[in-house]
Design a protein around this nucleic acid. Sequence first.
DNA 1: CAGTATCCTCATAGATACTG
DNA 2: CAGTATCTATGAGGATACTG
Lengths: 137, 137
Amino acid sequence: MSTSLKPAHIDLPAPPTRPDPNHAGCRGVASVLSRVGDKWSVFVIMTLGDGPKRFNELKRIIDGISQRMLTLTLRGLERDGLVTRTVFPTIPPRVDYELTELGRGLADPVQALGQWAFAHLPEIEGARTRFDQRNDT
Amino acid sequence: MSTSLKPAHIDLPAPPTRPDPNHAGCRGVASVLSRVGDKWSVFVIMTLGDGPKRFNELKRIIDGISQRMLTLTLRGLERDGLVTRTVFPTIPPRVDYELTELGRGLADPVQALGQWAFAHLPEIEGARTRFDQRNDT
DNA sequence: CAGTATCCTCATAGATACTG
DNA sequence: CAGTATCTATGAGGATACTG
């Protein structure tokens, strides 16, 4: 595997000079947002939101994700204690992924953000269009 | 400038085959989370949370951010309608950045996520340590 | 002061092939 | 079925130098 499970963007840059509580929080936020904001984690968390799923089940539902990326995303989430990985030693093998209590807790604020995003998507897209028109030609 | 203001990870991959409402929401979420989850946007949004700031003021406060990345991040946020950029044609020039109404609205769910992150950071770090011990040898 | 313009590096993510 | 292994490209992000 070429990609480490401890990506650089999770262990963040230079510590703040001021021990500002806002900043301490910010580092934590950013650490979680890096995890949650990467290309696929949200999809996986949301998909697991309505019950445990198997590997290829996730792959089918999320569509567009490569096998490799699904594996890496799941390992990352597992590392952070957000999902559990349960292996059933049958033939063919079966592996279930499920949100932990922690993972379900994370799903809430993420969904809040999601609802905000959904509600304001028209505004944002409008702003993007206007900005691009001002700057394109 | 080598980096586009319309990064590929914001205009997302293949559209879902099923018009699942959950999925439509997910794409929106992911779009915003990509913006919010990139390396610096959260810091900027949070820093602007307590009032407008100037370019170098932001650069000093956020520390670790390069001039280039601050510029790009601010442009991205401006493009999405989350911050305004106000130029005072004085000498030396002065440019103020400020959260828009939209930006302040985003700050709320982001802070919610941030508080969750801060509250559960010990759990997450514990999980990471245990995972790494299981797999490092 | 507030940026652009370049150059460079390395991590992220896709495609493909192979395996227990 | 559920992964690993390998190769490759793309582009995010840093360093530095220059400018209105």
